[in-house]
């Protein structure tokens, strides 16, 4: 089992001002499950995801993907292994949506066509693919970005607030997309402040504050662990039952 994990080992990461954002952080994520990262602003969640995705180099410690370092992956293997999305991106140059979907990817035509269809149906239904990405609203950009991961189809997705601007319909589409991936054994790690969205699909909860791990465990265990009570100082979290669906919702 352990050979397939995505891990941070004793990772310390520094900000521009040399302040420690993560300090000696060790974490192992199951690539077949959906993990949600929770914690107050400044806890180090975004830094954690960017280090995990090998976008930001840690100051010390190691990032391990399936018992190898990311540098050992060929470009093609890497694209198949991990996808990374952030909340927003600015695009300086004119790029059409249909080109945007395959930028930087290595795809054969026969692979690309069905994935394009799927991505379009799921996230881009009402958008003209000839439009330039720069002209899209922030929510539409997030949809285009999610569609891009559908074309890339990596084993593991790292999403940093990547669904924060979606309308309710597309948020439901995103939930369906992540759950369908999980049914196929493809997991994700997501940072979101929309806890009810995150908790509705998560298998595992990781909480952190001040650059240190507080809790890691299955969703049900976390709910009863008491971790949440002190996670957001000043907030008073409690669970209520939604009379329509019967699901438990978190209210502050």
């Amino acid at each position: 089992m352990s050979h397939s994990l995505f891990e941070l080992r004793e990772v310390t990461s520094l900000g521009d001002d040399r302040r420690e954002i993560l300090s000696h952080f060790t974490l192992a994520l199951d690539p077949k499950k959906i993990t949600i990262l929770v914690g107050p602003n400044g806890a180090g969640k975004s830094t954690l995801t960017s280090v995990l995705a090998d976008v930001k180099r840690p100051h010390s410690g190691a990032v391990v993907w399936k018992s190898k370092t990311p540098a050992d992956f060929s470009r093609e293997e890497r694209l198949q292994t991990l996808g990374y999305l952030t909340e927003s991106f600015s695009i300086e140059f004119p790029v059409r949506i249909q080109d945007f979907l395959k930028l930087g990817l290595i795809l054969r035509d026969e692979q690309a066509a069905p994935r394009f269809q799927e991505a379009r149906a799921h996230f881009l239904g009402d958008l003209d693919l000839e439009r330039e990405v720069g002209s899209l609203s922030s929510g539409e950009r997030q949809r285009a970005n999610l569609a891009r991961t559908m074309v890339q189809r990596p084993e593991f997705l790292v999403l940093d607030e990547a669904v924060s601007q979606l309308d309710p319909h597309h948020l439901a589409q995103a939930r369906e997309y992540l759950l369908e991936r999980r049914r196929q054994g493809l997991g994700a790690c997501l940072v979101t402040h929309d806890l009810n969205f995150g908790l509705s699909i998560a298998d595992v909860v990781v909480s952190l504050s001040g650059g240190k791990l507080r809790y890691q465990g299955a969703l049900q265990d976390w709910k009863t662990s008491g971790d949440l009570d002190s996670l957001y100082p000043g907030a008073k979290p409690h669970w209520v039952q939604d009379p329509m669906s019967g699901n438990e919702l978190l209210v502050f």
Binding site: A53, D54, V55, F73, L82, G83, L103, G104
Partner: peptide, 19 residues
Amino acid sequence: SRDLDALLLGESTARSLGV
């Protein structure tokens, strides 16, 4: 050109795509 194309997405996305 494929690497240059990925850079159109910005630096961090290009990095995540292995550029």
